[in-house]
Write a protein that binds this DNA or RNA. Structure first.
Length: 424
RNA sequence: GGCGCCUUGGCCGAGUGGUUAGGCACAGGUCUGCAAAACCUGGUACACCGGUUCGACUCCGGUAGGCGCCUCCA
């Protein structure tokens, strides 16, 4: 099993089964309803987890939730804890509705404060961090390998806003921030009252779950710098190997533009689920490679929906054996950098119900094999239509078909009678 | 300015140094009372310019265009 590794900039081989494969995927900051782009690392993580398990790996997936940070304070002044709790519920509900099951653990930053504080203490003890007026900063200059993940050269990094006068070096980043007026959540540490910085929580939570070394760290490609660079620096500063393989998924775009609030083109996961349904959404994700940007548009969604209908049709038809080696080709596609578009293309060739169902189940799409039962009134209409056809009263038969369609069903004539299929 | 990634037929999207990707859409056909579904048939595309090679969409270099990130901000 090979996966592209941001750190080594090449395809790296995973250890042979049973592994273990311990995976940590960065989750959302809970200050608003998650947008559909936030679902991509969740979906990829769950699929990979499911795939590795089926291949005999001891795969474990941890997906964190960032429930304390500036965005949350800004979004709900004085009530950030309530907002975080509510938005966490939204996130669990929306990702749950994807129907992929759950990661093995979903730690929250606010429930990991002791581990975070301990981590910072270690960094201070080894001189990799320093406290200033209640803030604590990581001393980048003391970690020479800084930049190894992103390839950023520090002398070329753009200086953004006015650097904090508390920093020894403008490149240093916060591990802990002293509490400010109006902030309603804080914790006490030896250097003062405050709350954790953004990057430290992931190092602390990942190592709390897995120990100082684990196999895979995932997240959106926008997290490479500075977030993941900083995580790596913190952990390796303490001599921890940390993640071996870094997976960064491409972002969602709307016709070439990044999905972002500033562009005004955000679609929430909730909206996407309500409008298109989980199967179509999953097929859209499945049809694009995890590392590539993905166009989220009515056109690409409609194509995904059509794919889904295509699979449903297969299950409505007779099961036929798939040529020898089909499953092996499918496996090979996934073993090669988890190439789901390639794997999906292969599935379109299959007519073997059992095999196809098995493959679709890996991606939470086994429901495509299930034909819902028509309600009694629709069945009654279909039976009346059958009688009309037998009497060659085709005007009545066509009228009944139209009526069946108005109930959201489609009547098809098959060899031994009729078939009722939901209209999509 | 720096770092990284991308550019395939109407659309989405794989892949390979010389051989059909697949899906969607479209057209014709078979089937059907009519349909639907299914099946059959129909397009050799790979940003541009050089180079390497017997031969490149596939390797190398450059150009153009697009995308992400560049420190407290997913």
């Amino acid at each position: 099993m090979q996966l592209y590794n941001t750190l080594t900039r090449r395809l790296d081989e995973l250890p042979a089964p049973p592994g273990p494969v311990r995976m940590y995927f960065c989750g959302p900051t809970v200050y608003a309803r998650a947008h559909v782009g936030n679902a991509r690392p969740y979906v990829i993580g769950m699929w990979l987890h499911s795939w590795l398990r089926s291949r005999g790996y001891e795969a474990t997936l941890v997906h964190n939730i960032t429930d304390v940070n500036d965005k949350i304070y800004d979004a709900a002044p004085g009530k950030s804890a309530e907002l975080a709790a509510r938005a966490t519920e939204w996130y669990l509900q929306d990702t749950g509705d994807l129907g992929l099951g759950r990661p093995d653990r979903m730690p929250q930053a606010t429930e990991s404060i002791p581990q975070i504080v301990h981590f910072i203490e270690e960094l201070i003890a080894r001189d990799f961090a320093y406290a200033r007026e209640g803030d604590v900063y990581f001393r980048v200059a003391r970690y020479p390998d800084y930049g190894q993940l992103s390839g950023q050269r520090l002398d070329q990094v753009e200086q953004g806003e006015e650097p904090s006068p508390l920093k020894e070096d403008p490149r240093d980043f916060a591990l802990w921030k002293a509490t400010k007026p109006g902030e309603d959540t804080w914790w006490d540490a030896s250097w003062g009252r405050g709350r954790p910085g953004w990057h430290i929580e992931c190092s602390a939570m990942a190592e709390d779950a897995f120990g100082p070394v684990f196999e895979i760290h995932g997240g959106g490609i926008d997290l490479v710098f500075p977030h993941h660079e900083n995580e790596l620096a913190q952990s390796r500063a303490l001599g921890h190997p940390f993640a071996q393989l870094w997976m960064h998924n491409g972002l969602l775009e709307f016709t070439g533009e990044k999905m972002a609030k500033s562009v005004g083109n955000v679609v929430t996961l909730r909206e996407a689920l309500d409008e298109w349904g989980r199967e179509t959404l999953l097929l859209l994700f499945l049809g694009s490679h995890w590392r590539k940007p993905m166009d989220f548009s009515d056109e690409t969604l409609a194509a995904a929906a059509a794919r889904g209908q295509g699979f449903r049709e297969v299950f409505l038809g007779p099961s036929e054996p798939t040529p020898a080696g089909a499953w092996e080709s499918f496996e090979a596609a996934l073993e090669d950098d988890f190439n789901t578009p390639q794997a999906l293309a292969l599935l379109h060739e299959w007519r073997d119900h059992e095999l196809l169902r098995r493959a679709l189940d890996l991606f939470g799409l086994g429901s495509l094999a299930e034909l819902p039962e028509a309600p009694a009134d629709v069945v009654d209409l279909a039976q009346r239509r059958q009688r009309a056809r037998a009497e060659r009263d085709f005007d009545e038969a066509d009228r009944l078909r139209a009526e069946i369609e108005s109930h959201g069903w489609e009547a098809r004539d098959v060899a031994d009678g009729y078939q009722l299929v939901p209209r999509r």
